[in-house]
Computed example of a mutant assay.
Amino acid sequence: MLDHETARTRVLEAAEELFYGRGVQAVGMDAVRHASGVSLKRLYQLFPSKEELVLEFLRQRDARWQRALADHVDARPTPEERITAVFDWLHTWFSDPGYRGCAFINSFGELGAVSPEVAEEARHHKKTFHDYLAGLVAAAGRPAGLAGQLALLAEGAITTAAIFGTPEPAHQARDAALLLLRTPASTRNATPSSA
């Protein structure tokens, strides 16, 4: 018999592969049971509801995703290089053959309207990412508003890469980020005058 931690790990690994690969609503607990090799009774002892399993899948994915991004970006020597490294990391992620977009956007789209907890996990993930970008912008001595602009570029690239099945949006977003970094803040934040 599997010990608690081994059984939990197997269930979460199976759930991640299935939920991310097929979508949360398309996958039942029986599919997770089958893929994990953990009995249905034991599965429900570990996760009394599918929603609890989905939430833990999202929490673990968030921690892993944020850590992988930071490991890649923080290795760059200058603050500006760290900002553009975000988009290089996104390109690597988009190039993975199993890339299906953002698990948080996908889960929010499927369950956000009916599960406040799933919606909150998605918001938490996005806020953490945006806060990370804000830290990079501050470390580079750039105006705080740049962080929101970079976040929109990254989020757009994440969605576009999934829809079109190509990593190229990461390079396009990186080029746009470089333009923003080169544009004086007074020009970038100016509002167009009305005619």
Score class of each variant (00 low, 15 high):
residue 83 I to L: 09
residue 1 M to Q: 11
residue 171 H to K: 08
residue 10 R to L: 02
residue 169 P to C: 06
residue 190 A to C: 05
residue 186 S to E: 14
residue 5 E to W: 08
residue 36 S to M: 00
residue 104 F to L: 13
residue 119 A to P: 05
residue 119 A to M: 04
residue 77 P to G: 15
residue 170 A to K: 01
residue 153 L to F: 04
residue 13 E to H: 11
residue 174 R to E: 12
residue 24 V to C: 10
residue 113 A to D: 00
residue 53 L to P: 04
residue 114 V to C: 09
residue 164 F to K: 15
residue 181 L to E: 05
residue 52 E to G: 06
residue 104 F to Y: 08
residue 25 Q to G: 14
residue 11 V to F: 07
residue 27 V to D: 10
residue 117 E to T: 12
residue 149 Q to V: 00
residue 73 V to S: 02
residue 63 A to G: 09
residue 77 P to W: 14
residue 122 A to C: 06
residue 195 A to W: 15
residue 4 H to P: 00
residue 165 G to M: 03
residue 126 K to Q: 14
residue 58 L to N: 04
residue 99 Y to H: 14
residue 54 V to K: 10
residue 4 H to Q: 08
residue 53 L to H: 11
residue 64 R to V: 06
residue 7 A to M: 09
residue 39 S to H: 10
residue 146 L to H: 07
residue 59 R to Y: 02
residue 99 Y to T: 10
residue 88 D to R: 07
residue 165 G to Y: 04
residue 144 A to D: 08
residue 70 A to Q: 11
residue 174 R to S: 03
residue 99 Y to V: 06
residue 182 R to E: 13
residue 173 A to H: 04
residue 122 A to K: 00
residue 69 L to K: 03
residue 100 R to T: 12
residue 130 H to T: 14
residue 175 D to C: 00
residue 187 T to L: 08
residue 33 R to W: 04
